[in-house]
Write a protein that binds this DNA or RNA. Structure first.
Lengths: 331, 331
DNA sequence: GTCGTTCATGGAAACGATTCCAGCAGGATT
DNA sequence: AATCCTGCTGGAATCGTTTCCATGAACGAC
């Protein structure tokens, strides 16, 4: 029984076994020119020794890791989980590893993770940015290939996002059509853009825009619950709630039950992001579906693309009507 | 404006700027011995140049990447998402990056990913193993530090798992107490161990054990749905269903609705894994809660631990009774 | 027959860090 | 005063790969 740890077989070993120089081995293995005879010898030796080139050596020489870094606020959130899945699925076809970091929507933690990425010489990074533009300065200066997903952080970085504005407008029109005049928005920090789209949608349908109808929560479930409960209690005149994400939607349903606010009789609810359980929920939730996986996949495609890239990719959203909205309640 | 890409500042630059040798710089920065005066000079120069040691150089020299690899069947599954979160949270305190791969419960893909890990010189890997023992041979021979999570793949690898057997026994006792005699188990591939525990639980309570009451599904949601629907149709005499995971539970609820099988009137359901939506579901689901995040965290702790490690860590599960189980229906 | 061109090949440098080892200064001990 | 020891320091080797460059052979053209 041999349970000793083997020394790694290197290109040198293969060269020796095949009776050629190391340069030739490297050339054959990376598809360079070589005579058929040598090629065969090298390949045979490599197979015999079960040789695997060390990514470390290669990366050091090339001064970059092919791999890609991925920064999301929360892996537990189904939306980001699907986004990650999309990125992984694209990266797999390139055979490149993906390193995942969780920012928790905290710019400081984000900056920390960016530092790690730079240390690792990651040259491709996909991120759902939480920090302001300047957090990303060092990353850009280090020359890494950056793509934002789900949010557009700064104008000079390409981004792949869902058509928030379109989805929100459809949802607001739908709610307005049901007679709702006071619609609240439960947002997550970092969704400034979505909040702006909400206001724009309100004024498009001719509803008054007030900042007091926007409530913010942090990334955690606890914070979401607190914000949702606060919203329902402090705004008894709001007859409809738009939840900015599935965690917020979940929190709203829970808080409503706790406070004995019935959906959709007392308050209507539209949630951003279609998740499997939205249909299982009681009542089934009307949602603005987002192509989370596609966002991840497209962002990965972009980050692998060498040449010039489109500054922005916008993917469509869709309002899926189920049973969580009804006519405005009588006060 | 300088938007040119900077050359990386190396230990050599710092040495030059501080007027010392490279060895001294390295020593100061990694906490070795140095006089207070030199230390200060080096630190100042490093700060001035915004020096960040390259992980590539370090890793090549050390012949290992500190980072950890993490292999799960599916990031979209809330259970594994939470497990990942636990691993990330522990890894963060060590400042080490985590590379995530998706196996899809496919041994072949798993072997492929193991290859990538070895190429990357990852020396720590946490995995939810899908392949048979021999898939992991190369990894062990390469000397990497391996810990299994959620499933125990082979005896010579430490594992962190939930107390499946205990949870199942409690659930089966509960269902038997409600009068159920024919309990079906909807399992995922790779859950052989859980299936065995199910059989054991049945015989403990004195119910007949038949392999026909166990139905298998693959990792995808589609496969889960098909399996659930098949189970409900082909086993009309089964009055209770145990779903081996949250995706399977979700599929069972959907299939039941589609087939007009009412829960819990027609069939009782217990699902493995407590997810936030279990409470929102109609009816709220009785579940066997698993500490998914803890499993990940503990596995990460283990993989970082240098010395000898316990061969197995078993974390408790808990039956959370909600409203998806009722007395045996009359046929 | 000689020259120029093409092609395969191998040695050596480079990437950026860590670490071994030798050198050297300065103080304590005999 | 000679010796030893301790503590700092810097040069050089090393990790495993890629790639530049020089060398040599083969071959066609003049």
């Amino acid at each position: 029984m041999n349970d000793g740890i083997q020394r790694r077989t290197t290109v040198k070993d293969v060269a020796e076994a095949a009776g050629v120089g190391v340069a030739t081995v490297s050339r054959v293995l990376s598809g360079g020119q070589a005579s058929a005879q040598t090629r065969e010898k090298v390949l045979a030796a490599a197979a015999r020794l079960d040789y695997r080139p060390s990514a470390l050596g290669r990366n050091l020489r090339r001064r970059r890791t092919g791999g890609i870094g991925l920064l999301v606020p929360d892996v537990t959130d189904s939306f980001y989980a699907r986004l990650i899945d999309g990125v992984l699925s694209c990266a797999r076809s390139y055979g490149e590893p993906v390193t995942v970091g969780v920012t928790g929507d905290d710019p400081e933690r984000e900056a920390e993770l960016i530092g790690t990425m730079i240390e690792q010489s990651m040259d491709r990074v996909i991120a759902v940015p939480s920090g302001d533009g300047e957090t990303w300065g060092p990353a850009l200066r280090a020359g890494l290939n950056l793509v934002f997903a789900d949010r557009r952080g700064r104008a000079d970085v390409p981004s792949v996002i869902a058509d928030d504005a379109g989805g929100l407008l459809t949802a607001v029109e739908y709610l307005a059509g049901l007679g709702h005049r006071k619609i609240a928005f439960l947002a997550r920090h970092g969704q400034a853009q979505r909040v702006a789209a909400f206001s724009a949608a309100l004024s498009t349908v001719g509803l008054p825009v007030g900042p007091d109808l926007v409530v913010h929560a942090r990334a955690s479930r606890d914070s979401a619950y607190a914000a949702a409960a606060g919203l329902l209690q402090r705004h008894p005149d709001a007859t409809a709630v738009l939840a900015g994400g599935n965690v917020l939607g979940e929190a709203t349903v829970l808080a409503a039950r706790e406070l004995d606010v019935r959906i959709p009789r007392d308050v209507s609810l539209v949630m951003f992001d279609d998740v499997p359980w939205a249909e299982l929920c009681s009542p089934p939730l009307t949602v603005i579906a987002q192509p989370a996986q596609d966002i991840g996949y497209r962002a990965a495609e972009l980050v692998f693309r060498q040449g010039r890239r489109p500054p922005r990719v916008i993917l469509p959203t869709e309002l899926v009507v189920r049973a969580s909205c009804g006519p405005r309640r009588r006060i």
